[in-house]
């Protein structure tokens, strides 16, 4: 039972990182129906950005709590801004001109962009895995309650940040003017344009949000795992994309749910089965879900996009 709970906690923390990346996929898909293959690699690049900030600030275990919190906050903000700007740039360079092209064209363009980002990542930090500074000690927050199960402070932080960002994102999409514009653009681009909505700006904003989430995910992933490598974006991106499809692509809550499900599945499969079956188990689960619910767990026929 203790193992079970421990693995559940591990899975949820892992899942929350997948969820953050999945939100970016789902946001972009919801509005222009493009699977942004470069998203996983953007996550990797912004993670490197966060790593650079932490390295520069050189915050260690021994520093005061205040400076640690400030350092983490700085890394988070830099990574989010970095991710957002790069993603907007990618949209401008690689996708905007192809918006009315046949579906395959932007898809290939996205794949190409992914390779470009991987190369940039490799030239930036080298090809070996890089150690990610973890200023916040992973102490057990459940210890005061005498619990045999441990929940590291870092893990808790990842989960909390994910949930806060999901709430903030839902607010932006459902309650603000620009969110309304996004939803309108998602439903019918031409009609929205006729109503005076600036389509380019609205779509760029969706990319901005998606990139910022990838940036946050980059930092949180680094805190959870402790290393980052230039090819890590592919695997994480693939699992996050799966999470988005599993939850119902285009649906924000679905993406988060899918992320948690994939993280938990991975942790349980690693623990109770031979870890080499993990990917088969995850994708088997995806197939099974799609067979019975082709539009994902929370996606339904009248999906409210974005």
């Amino acid at each position: 039972m203790q193992d079970f709970l421990q693995i559940l906690i591990t899975g949820i923390s892992l899942g929350s990182v997948f969820a953050l990346i999945a939100l970016g996929y789902t946001l972009v898909y919801g509005i222009i129906e493009l699977i942004n293959f470069a998203h996983g690699d953007l996550f990797m690049l912004s993670s490197f950005a966060a790593l650079t900030v932490l390295d520069r600030l050189d915050i260690g275990f021994r520093d005061a709590t205040g400076s640690k919190v400030l350092g983490m906050l700085a890394a988070l903000i830099v990574a989010m801004i970095f991710g957002a700007l790069v993603n907007v740039l990618i949209e401008r360079l690689a996708y905007r001109r192809l918006r009315n092209a046949p579906r395959l064209a932007p898809l290939i363009s996205a794949l190409g962009m992914s390779f470009v980002l991987v190369q940039i990542g490799q030239s930036w930090k080298g090809s070996a895995p890089v150690s990610f500074p973890r200023p916040i000690a992973n102490q057990n927050v459940l210890a005061p309650f005498g619990s045999p199960v441990t929940l590291g402070l870092n893990n808790l932080l990842t989960i909390v940040v994910t949930i806060l960002l999901l709430i903030a994102l839902s607010y932006v999409v459902n309650r603000t003017r620009i969110g309304k514009a996004m939803r309108a653009t998602a439903q019918d681009r031409d009609a929205s344009a006729l109503m005076g909505i600036d389509i380019n700006r609205t779509i760029a904003f969706a990319f901005l949000l998606g990139g910022a989430l990838a940036g946050a995910a980059g930092l949180m992933f680094g805190q959870f795992t402790g290393t980052m490598a230039f090819q890590r974006g592919f695997e994480a991106g693939l699992k996050a994309f799966t999470a988005a499809v599993l939850g119902g692509i285009g649906n924000l809550t679905g993406a988060v749910l899918g992320g948690f499900l994939i993280g938990i599945t991975q942790a349980f499969s690693d623990f109770y089965l031979d870890p080499r079956w993990t990917n088969s188990v995850i994708f088997g689960l995806l197939i099974l879900t799609l067979v019975f619910r082709p539009s994902g767990i929370l996606g339904d026929s009248t999906t409210q996009k974005a």
Partner: peptide, 20 residues
Amino acid sequence: FEGIDPKAGSYSGVAQKVIS
């Protein structure tokens, strides 16, 4: 005696198994 996915981003589940 087990194989792991060489590209996975996290082995925390496997590590837990080793500890247990």
